[in-house]
């Protein structure tokens, strides 16, 4: 045991917990998404497997695992295999720095948010590889749309996060939460919050910005050719990203784990954290089932003509106020 320091064991345990959290969370989110979609359209959603269909996603997951992964002709096989892994692994690893509560955080990196952003930027590459290697026009168009969209929306997203980072003077997720002890940043930086939220919808390819996988035009976009667990990994990655967006929004704007005191606040702060995260995720689902998909030119106009100028002005005002 001399080779295994306690720190190593701690990281091992926390990564197992994180992976299980991601899987469990994807299951819950798929269920929530289908239920919310159903009720918004005044139908009950899944009802058959288990009481009120709560076991539906479990069964779906088992089905996906049991399915064969089909490799179409003339694909670029190595890239075709790497792409789902590249979509899934970074999305999970990024959870390492999320502060669920004061003591529930795998690692508190000095530059937690940059760590998350660096890993999130790999998502685009995964989508691109998936689209290109599938040798399918729908996949390729989906991938190209995704790249254009992600590059464009990364700018307002970073601008809005930067405005908050100016105020905290730290890139560590934990200290960002602690800086919000007196006042949540959503009150101080409402514009940044809105910009971040909208940009993150585009970054995660969620409606109304779901052009990369627009099912009515591109069948399924970049993951058209994927089946079985390869498709499942894309799906897991997408839901992991949704929670990641919720977690970043909570950490940056909604005060992280802070909330009415509970017993053992050091750990039970995770309850408030998750409540806020799931509220954000719920609103993402709510958005999806409310708004129609934007057109591509609208998407780009919205980013470059509204989000970027507002982000820049917001950043400048923040800097001015902080310096004066």
């Amino acid at each position: 045991m001399a080779l295994l320091p306690p720190e190593f064991i701690r990281i091992l345990i926390s990564s197992v917990l994180i992976v299980s959290f991601v899987f469990l969370n994807a299951m819950i989110l798929v269920y929530i998404e289908r239920k919310v979609a159903g009720h918004i359209q005044r139908r009950p959603g899944p009802m058959e497997v288990g009481p009120h269909g709560i076991l539906q996603t479990l069964i779906d997951g088992l089905k996906l695992m049991g399915k064969q992964i089909i490799f179409p002709d003339n694909i670029d096989k190595p890239l075709f295999c790497i792409a789902p892994l590249l979509a899934f692994v970074p999305a999970v690893v990024a959870f390492v720095v999320i502060p669920f509560s004061p003591k529930l955080q795998a690692v508190d990196l000095d530059m937690g948010i940059i760590f998350i952003l660096a890993l999130a930027s790999l998502n685009v590459l995964a989508i691109l590889l998936a689209g290109w290697s599938s040798n399918n026009k729908y996949s390729l168009i989906g991938a190209m749309r995704s790249v254009a969209q992600n590059i464009a929306y990364e700018i307002p997203m970073l601008l809005s996060l930067l405005a908050v980072l100016f105020m905290t003077n730290s890139l560590s997720m934990k200290s960002i939460v602690e800086a919000q002890k007196p006042l949540w940043f959503i009150v101080v930086q409402p514009v940044a919050f809105l910009i971040y939220f909208i940009a993150s919808l585009a970054e995660t390819n969620r409606a109304p910005f779901d052009l990369p996988e627009a099912e009515s035009e591109l069948t399924a976009g970049f993951h058209t050719e994927y089946g079985g667990m390869a498709y499942g990994l894309f799906y897991l990655g997408e839901y992991a990203n949704m929670v990641m967006v919720g977690a970043i929004t909570t950490t940056f704007f909604l005060g992280g784990w802070s909330g009415p005191p509970l017993p053992y606040m050091e750990y039970s702060g995770a309850f408030w954290f998750l409540a806020k995260v799931y509220f954000i995720v719920f609103s993402m689902i709510w958005f999806r089932w409310t708004f129609p998909r934007v057109r591509f030119d609208q998407l780009m106009n919205f980013c470059w003509k509204i989000m970027v100028p507002f982000g820049l002005v917001n950043l400048m005002i923040t800097a001015l106020v902080l310096k004066i």
């Binding site: 940059i114 952003l117 660096a118 890993l119 999130a120 930027s121 790999l122 685009v124 590459l125 691109l128 790249v147 992600n150 590059i151 990364e154």
Partner: peptide, 11 residues
């Protein structure tokens, strides 16, 4: 990773 892989290579 963020700039070279995530932004420049993608571009």
């Amino acid at each position: 990773v963020l700039i070279y892989v995530g932004a420049i290579c993608v571009t």
